[in-house]
C-alpha cells in the first residue's frame, strides 16, 4: 500500500514537471510570435539597398534588414598560440642530394632567432654510415614529431604540440629540468646555460615586443630550453621559414601536408609525389616518433661532397658576435 502511494506520487510529480515545461515553452513561443507581428507592423528606414542574389537577379532590400554574414574563411580568426593554426599541417622536406654545406641556412637561422649560445638550432652534420660508403651532409632541425618524446616528459606543459603540427616552447613556463633534452633522440634542443644577453651582443630591439612561443629566441631566457620552431612568425606573414629562403641550393621544401604541396621558394611540388618519386624517408622512423621532417636520400654524394668541406667546422655552429 505504502509502495503504491509512493508510485502515484512520483507519477504526479513527473506529470507536473512536464506540464510546467510545456507551459513555459508555450509562453515563450507566444512572446516570439508577438514580437514578429510587432516587427512587421513597424516601418523600415525607407533606405533601400540593391543586392544580387546567387542566381544573378537584382533585388532591393531595406537597409535595416541587411546583416553581415560570418566569413567562411577561418584564417582571419585570431587563433590560440597553444592550439595552432586551424586546418593546417606543416611539413618540411630536406633534399640531401642538394646539400653542399653552404651553411647559409644556419647563419640565417642564428641571425633571425638571435642565437647567442654555442649550439645552433639548425645543424649540418657530416655523416658517413660506414667506412665503405660515401659521406654526405645532413641538415637537422626540430622534427616536430607527431608523437614528441619531449612533450610527453615535460612536467609543466612548457613544451607543447599544436594541431598544425608544431612543437613549441613556452619559455615563461619552463623550469629548466632538461628532461625534454634527455628525451629527444635527435639532440635538437639547446639550453641557455647563461644569460643570453641578446640586447647587448646583437643589439636586439626588445621595445614594443611581446614574447611568444611563436618566435623562438625572441627573447631567449636563462635556464630554459630553446629549439627550432618552424618559424610560425613567418608562416603568419605568409612567408617561408628563414632556412628555406636562405638556402642557395634549394635544399629545404616547406609546406602544408593537407594541401599536399611543398615549396623551396623556386619550385612548388606535390608533397606525396615528391616523396614517392625520390623515396623520401624520416629520420629514425623505427623509434615511432612520427617526425614531420622528411628526407630525400643523398644520391650522387661522392662527387659533391668535397665542395662543402671548406665551411665545415667541427667545433662551431654559431659565429661569435665580435667581428
Amino acid at each position: 500500500m505504502k509502495n503504491n502511494s509512493h508510485k502515484s506520487r512520483r507519477i504526479f510529480l513527473n506529470k507536473g514537471v512536464k506540464a510546467t515545461l510545456l507551459t513555459a515553452l508555450g509562453s515563450l513561443g507566444l512572446v516570439k510570435v508577438a514580437s514578429k507581428i510587432n516587427a512587421n507592423s513597424s516601418e523600415g528606414s525607407g533606405d533601400m539597398v540593391e543586392l544580387m542574389t546567387t542566381d544573378g537577379t537584382l533585388i532591393q532590400i531595406d537597409s535595416t534588414e541587411v546583416q553581415a554574414m560570418p566569413s567562411a574563411h577561418t584564417d582571419e580568426v585570431a587563433y590560440n598560440v597553444r592550439e595552432g593554426m586551424p586546418n593546417r599541417k606543416f611539413v618540411m622536406v630536406v633534399d640531401l642530394a642538394k646539400c653542399k654545406n653552404a651553411l647559409k641556412c644556419q647563419q640565417s637561422c642564428n641571425k633571425h632567432h638571435y642565437i647567442t649560445g654555442e649550439n645552433a638550432w639548425l645543424k649540418v652534420y657530416e655523416m658517413q654510415e660506414t667506412k665503405d660508403t660515401a659521406p654526405y651532409w645532413l641538415p637537422s632541425m626540430c622534427m616536430h614529431c607527431d608523437k614528441p618524446a619531449c612533450v610527453t616528459v615535460c612536467p609543466v606543459d612548457a613544451t607543447f604540440k599544436r594541431r598544425d603540427g608544431l612543437v613549441l616552447i613556452d619559455n615563461d613556463r619552463c623550469i629548466g629540468c632538461r628532461f625534454c633534452m634527455a628525451a629527444c633522440p635527435y639532440s635538437t634542443r639547446v639550453f641557455n646555460w647563461s644569460e643570453p644577453k641578446q640586447e647587448f651582443t646583437l643589439n636586439m630591439d626588445m621595445i614594443n615586443h611581446h614574447p611568444s612561443p611563436e618566435h623562438g629566441g625572441m627573447p631567449s631566457q636563462i635556464g630554459t630550453v630553446d629549439k627550432c620552431d618552424f618559424c610560425p612568425h613567418q608562416i603568419v606573414k605568409n612567408e617561408l621559414p628563414h632556412c628555406v629562403t636562405a638556402c642557395p641550393n634549394g635544399v629545404f621544401y616547406f609546406g602544408d601536408k593537407y594541401e599536399d604541396t611543398v615549396t623551396n621558394g623556386e619550385e612548388t611540388l606535390r608533397f606525396s609525389q615528391l616523396l614517392k618519386d625520390k623515396s623520401g624517408y624520416r629520420m629514425m622512423e623505427g623509434l615511432g616518433t612520427e617526425p614531420n621532417v622528411y628526407y630525400l636520400p643523398p644520391t650522387d654524394r661522392l662527387v659533391e661532397f668535397e665542395e662543402g668541406l671548406e665551411f665545415y667546422n667541427e667545433f662551431q655552429s654559431v659565429e661569435s658576435p665580435e667581428e
Binding site: E118, N119, A120, K123, V124, Y125, E126, M127, S140, P185, Y186, S187, M284, N313, E314, F315, Q316, S317
Partner: peptide, 13 residues
Amino acid sequence: HPFLPIQGVPESW
C-alpha cells in the same frame, strides 16, 4: 652517446 654525432659544439662539450 646520442643518436646523432656530436658536432658543431666546442670540443669540451
